[in-house]
């Protein structure tokens, strides 16, 4: 359905957004609300993923450091689209959603930071110029034991490995850091605030996912509707069939559910973001399942809905797996039922 966009380059898209000035705005949620429908319409899922991660999380974390020093300089370059960023949180030494047990370390001295460890399934890992690396600078299992380090990915001791062909354009891969030494001025924000900074911005990343899912569902449903209206069936077209219409309507109801969740989202609200993310992941899969079923064999064509559905399973994994988020939702049951936090 969108063959023309599959060869686009994520770096070129990022550079174009930078030149337009949109990346310099400091309200990422508003930027994403305005950008995502057109990004989804024009580019592959991988390219949208590449852009989304940077706008929702990487740039805001860099920006929170302020304009000074090397971090401030890279932040400005990224906002101009000249530097591509990776956000390296998911750790090779711990389960994806278990940041508290991550093992990538940052040894601080007076003027240096030395990073050792690995990060897996990182968007833009293969293509980025710099990675924001979440690392442990103290052994205690406490949220104050983590910091962010800005690591140039051409630094000695960094190796990158592609994670395969899924999410084409997103440059997903694995990073290894072996005695990577950078100046102490590469620490982003204050040591000890790494997880808190992430928490500040991960809610926006989840809203980005929901907005993107909403645009994606709307587009795929519209495309499916056009195919059904033109596909001969009996003496008419598939769209005339009551069973087809019922199936399609169920998908449409799910899509509207996603839109409603986006509208009710309170920006920066972590608990809301967990609920929304779990719900959206389930709804996207239902919508794409309906469309794949209605389109039949056509959904397995290159760029078709079946492949998209496999990639869209990411909505239930990246940024917090549904199972882990449901545990958080249960922890806040009283608050979500109207009680105190």
């Amino acid at each position: 359905m969108r063959e023309a966009v599959l060869d686009a380059d994520a770096r070129a898209v990022w550079a174009s957004l930078g030149r337009s000035g949109v990346l310099s705005r400091d309200r990422p949620a508003e930027v994403l609300r305005s950008l995502l429908p057109s990004l989804d319409a024009q580019y592959s899922l991988g390219i949208v993923l590449s852009v989304c991660v940077q706008i929702a999380t990487a740039l805001p974390i860099l920006r929170s450091h302020g304009p000074s020093g090397v971090v401030g300089r890279v932040s400005a370059e990224a906002a101009r689209g000249e530097v591509v960023l990776a956000l390296a949180a998911t750790d090779a030494g711990a389960a994806g959603s278990d940041l508290m047990d991550l093992t990538t370390s940052a040894r601080l001295s007076e003027d240096r930071v030395v990073v050792d460890g690995g990060k897996r399934w990182i968007t833009n890992a293969v293509t980025a110029d710099c990675a924001l690396v979440l690392a442990r600078h103290r052994p205690q299992r406490h949220f104050t034991s983590f910091l962010w380090v800005l690591v140039p990915l051409d630094a000695p001791g960094v190796t990158r490995e592609s994670a395969g062909s899924l999410f084409s354009g997103a440059g997903v891969g694995h990073l290894t850091f072996s005695g990577v030494s950078v100046g102490r001025d590469h620490v982003v924000g204050a040591p000890g605030r790494g997880l808190a900074m992430f928490a500040r911005h991960v809610a926006t990343e989840r809203l980005a996912g929901a907005l993107w899912a909403s645009a994606l569902c709307r587009r795929v449903l519209a495309d499916t509707r056009r195919v059904l209206a033109a596909r001969p069936l009996g003496s008419g077209v598939a769209w005339d069939n009551a069973v087809v219409r019922d199936r399609f309507a169920r998908g449409l109801v799910e899509a509207r559910r996603v839109e409603a969740l986006c509208s009710s989202f309170r920006e920066g609200e972590l608990v809301d973001s967990m609920v929304v993310k779990v719900a959206v992941a389930e709804s996207v899969d239902r919508v794409l399942a309906v469309c794949a079923e209605l389109l039949g064999a056509e959904s397995f064509a290159d760029g078709g809905v079946a492949g998209l559905r496999a990639e869209a399973a990411m909505f239930g994994v990246a940024g917090g797996a549904s199972g882990a988020l449901l545990a958080g939702v249960a922890d806040h049951a009283d608050y979500l039922l109207g009680g105190a936090r």
């Binding site: 508290m100 205690q140 406490h142 949220f143 204050a190 000890g192 605030r193 997880l195 808190a196 922890d331």
Partner: peptide
């Protein structure tokens, strides 16, 4: 007080008391 709630508590403290806990006090 679990880790996620501790982060939310830190935000609440800093908003309510209009303070920023210094780096050396950001410890377990």
């Amino acid at each position: 007080l679990d880790s996620m709630q501790a982060i939310e508590l830190l935000f609440a403290i800093e908003d309510t008391y209009q303070v920023s806990l210094p780096d050396e006090l950001l410890t377990d």
